[in-house]
Amino acid sequence: MRSGRPSAWGAAQLVASAALVAFLLLPVAALVLTLPWADFVGGLRHPLLIPALRLSLLTTGTSLALVVVLGSLLAWRVARHPGRASRWLEAITQLPAVIPPAVAGVGLLLAFGRRGLLGSWLAAHGIAIAFTTPAVVMAEAFVSAPFFVQAGIAAFRRVDENLLVVARTLGASPFRAFLRVGLPLAAPGLVAGAAMSWARSLGEFGATLLFAGNLTGRTQTLPLAVYTAMESDLRAAQALSLVMVAVAFALLFVLRRMAPGAALPGPGVRGA
């Protein structure tokens, strides 16, 4: 029975919620509220901004495309062929999510660096990856893939198997059944996974710094530009940070419009 008086349990929920929300909002509010407009405009003219923004959009776009194409096929395989091999595949693709980014950077260097496991062979054939723009893409793909793959597996598992069987009996090859039935029905989950994955790669810092370095125009993404600007000019770092937040919100907004049913972060997610 409900009474008009709030219970101690209800009060505890409210206090905990208020404390956590205040803690989560305060840094974002501080970013916006403590920067005078003139300083923000000045920060936008900072020489690091445009090259870093351009590089971030290019590398995160490329890593997202790689993760979405390869990850969709892998997620489909895992979701539609349950068994020991699929459980292993799923576990392996989740590994990067629990590896600290700095460790990921060291691992990438030891694998693809000039003296790395595969890197030494590549170097012998004239291909150098570490400290180049492709290294940024690889670092971003490494840390962000688990977010997309996990969401993809869950989305594909929710596709009713009967629909796929019927599609096959209606003449569809396994690929056409995937394309015409599996993919559209899983789309909201895939878009949500892509958004989380993209947000993770936009904020990627540690693995990029160790594996790709911090070279303006070549490997210096927005988070690295913020870090570099911090060393000399806090206001510029703050302006760059706000640009990053704006880019992230803009992309999330576009993705929400693309897939209205997707459980993306932000207001309007029902039943999440």
């Binding site: 009713d160 009967n162 069987v165 019927v166 009996t169 209606l170 003449g171 090859s173 015409r180 559209p184």
Partner: peptide, 27 residues
């Protein structure tokens, strides 16, 4: 897909992202 057997499952398995005509023309 090459067996030429028509199949209607218990829940009918209509493709929810297509209209009736889209379903009927799928095959």
């Amino acid at each position: 897909e090459e067996r030429e057997l028509a199949y209607v499952p218990q829940d009918y398995a209509l493709f929810p992202h297509m209209d009736v005509l889209g379903n009927a023309t799928f095959g």
